[in-house]
Design a protein around this nucleic acid. Structure first.
Length: 514
RNA sequence: GCCCCAUUCGUCUAGAGGCCUAGGACGUGGCCCUCUCAAGGCCAAAACACGGGUUCGAAUCCCGUAUGGGGCACCA
């Protein structure tokens, strides 16, 4: 350790070339899954699947202060919804478990102890008050903040004295890593190439907390080692702490995996990363959701969200934006198509893509199957026959499943909510002409024997000439009368599905309201 | 403040020294279609951050500057 080379160039070990690809996604369970997390998971998953390797889900729950007992279930649900299947992890097991860090505490503690015994780490007895004090003083001297390494250079006698003080105050010490004081650490990143760091400005980070839990740094290296992870793909926010991880690998003498630091997703305006606490807004001021569950609730399709996310920071090539997960797997052979630059989250592109999937990738039956729970959640009684007839009508008109409510919800409502009288009156018309058109149309429609779109259209068309109206006026009027809304499914198709009885009643009602 | 990373149309991106008069997509605008709204078709505007090198030749390589982002916790 003391005679570490001045420059340590760390590249993932060659042994991985002969071993199966094993990637992992290691979120901390603090609620639903962050949309950026899903993308990271997707990239790892794609790479493992491309190479016929394994994808592992590991839960990093070492922060007791943020413990949320329901979070794991929510997280698992989001992953499953997105179709990101794991070969090892919670609920599926695996031979390298447990896959929840809080169940691996003994391991971290014994390796932490090993590091201390082998002089790679030391016990630090400093109180948080002292740490604060040190930082304050450093700040006053305009020095970089950070721990002053007092406990690292203390003599054995002093150490024992500090230990006693610490115990007397009822505090528990922490373990800090002895970061090399000089030299350079170079990480060979798979998407960025060589990234180098000056050792002297690094910190002696805490690796084992006073509550006996490890910090991310210790846990991640131990787990990645024992879970035989070959490639670590994680967000760039981890790059600055990568040198610590490099030295941890080095200290343990383990084969380091390959690292690929992924770009982060920024707010749509490019300012700051997407966060739950400061939710981004679109140009109209609407909040753009950050958690996967928000997208589930808003009526996005998993295949569309996946496709969308994969397109940010990675490209399929061949000028293609729409592709299946299978096609993405086939193309995700290496890291060369990953763009190192951060990117702004493009919400309108997601809406477009979701629309593409709804109208081009889903059969009517499949779309109807997905629309049903949306309608039912809204309290509607869904008649399957009606739904199957309505679905093709909404298919080209909705971008999210939820939009079916506003455009075609009236099909599934028992009571009819008529439009306001002024909405019935079309351009260049008035109450009298509108009422007249309504009554005349009713007369004609009553005589239509088979109530089909074509027959209805044919029967109504001559009325435009008779009443001196254009298509837009007459048909628009009928739409509002029959659906109660100005934007809806096409008029004659709607009448056909509603049937003669309801259609005529609604025309009567409309006329009576004028 | 210090460290690290990045920089192609408004946005997501293609681009690995000549294929670039810089391609695709979203969005935007226009036209067509049209019973509303969509969908669809056609067209248009729109970018290599800046300055120096290297080279016969640079969006592509190097160096600075600027800008943006990330990180500097007993959070991950």
């Amino acid at each position: 350790m003391t005679d570490a080379p001045a420059t340590l160039v760390a590249t993932g070990s060659d042994v991985w070339a002969d071993r199966p690809v094993r990637t992992r996604f290691a979120p901390s369970p603090t609620g639903s899954l962050h949309i950026g997390g899903l993308r990271t998971a997707l990239f790892n998953w794609l790479y493992a699947r491309n190479h016929g390797g394994q994808f592992i889900l590991r839960i990093e729950d070492t922060d007791q202060k943020r413990f949320d007992p329901t979070a794991l279930q929510t997280l698992v649900e989001a992953m499953r919804w997105a179709g990101v299947t794991w070969d090892e992890g919670p609920e599926v097991g695996g031979e390298y478990g447990p896959y929840v860090q809080s169940e691996r505490l003994e391991m971290y503690q014994s390796w932490g102890k090993w590091l201390v015994e082998n002089d790679y780490a030391y016990t630090c007895y400093c109180s948080s008050e002292r740490l604060e004090q040190v930082n304050k003083e450093k700040q006053a001297r305009k020095e970089a903040p950070g721990y002053d390494r007092r406990c690292r250079f203390v003599t054995e006698d002093e150490r024992q004295k500090l230990a006693a003080e610490c115990a007397a105050e009822g505090r528990k010490p922490v373990i800090r890593f002895k970061f090399p004081l000089e030299g350079t650490t170079v990480l060979n990143d798979l998407v960025r190439g060589e990234v180098s760091f000056e050792n002297k400005i690094q910190q002696d980070s805490v690796i084992l907390k006073s509550d006996g839990f490890p910090t991310y740094h210790l846990a991640v290296v131990i787990d990645d080692h024992f879970m035989q992870i070959s490639h670590v793909m994680r967000a760039v926010e981890w790059l600055p702490s990568a040198p610590l991880h490099v030295h941890l690998w080095q200290a343990f003498g383990w084969e380091m995996p390959h690292y690929a630091h992924l770009p982060v997703m920024l707010n749509p305006n490019g300012k700051g990363k997407m966060s739950k606490r400061n939710p981004p807004k679109d140009k109209f001021g609407n909040v753009i959701p950050v958690m996967v569950h928000d997208y589930i609730r808003s009526g996005y399709l998993p295949e569309a969200l996946d496709n969308f996310l994969i397109n940010i920071g990675w490209s399929y090539g061949e000028d293609r934006e729409v592709f299946s997960l299978e096609e993405a797997i086939e193309r995700f052979t290496d890291f060369s198509r990953i763009n190192p630059a951060n990117s702004a989250f493009p919400p309108e592109k997601l809406d477009w893509l979701n629309g593409v999937y709804i109208r081009e990738k889903l059969s009517v039956e499949e779309l109807a199957r997905r629309l049903r729970p949306v309608l039912e959640n809204e309290g509607y009684e869904v008649n399957v026959d009606t739904l199957l007839k309505v679905t093709p009508l909404v298919q080209t008109r909705i971008k999210t499943l939820n939009e079916v409510i506003s455009i075609a919800g009236f099909f599934f409502r028992e009571e009819f909510i008529p439009a306001k009288p002024e909405e019935l009156i079309q351009k260049k018309m008035d109450t009298t002409t509108t009422k007249q058109a309504l009554e005349r149309s009713r007369q004609v429609l009553e005589g239509v024997a088979d109530f089909t779109t074509q027959a209805l259209h044919d029967a109504t068309q001559p009325l435009t000439a008779e009443l001196g109206l254009n298509n837009s006026q007459l048909f628009g009027l009928l739409r509002v009368a029959v659906t109660g809304q100005t934007v809806s499914t096409p008029t004659f198709e709607t009448m056909e599905i509603l049937g003669k009885d309801k259609t005529l009643k609604r025309l009567d009602l409309a006329a009576s309201l004028l």
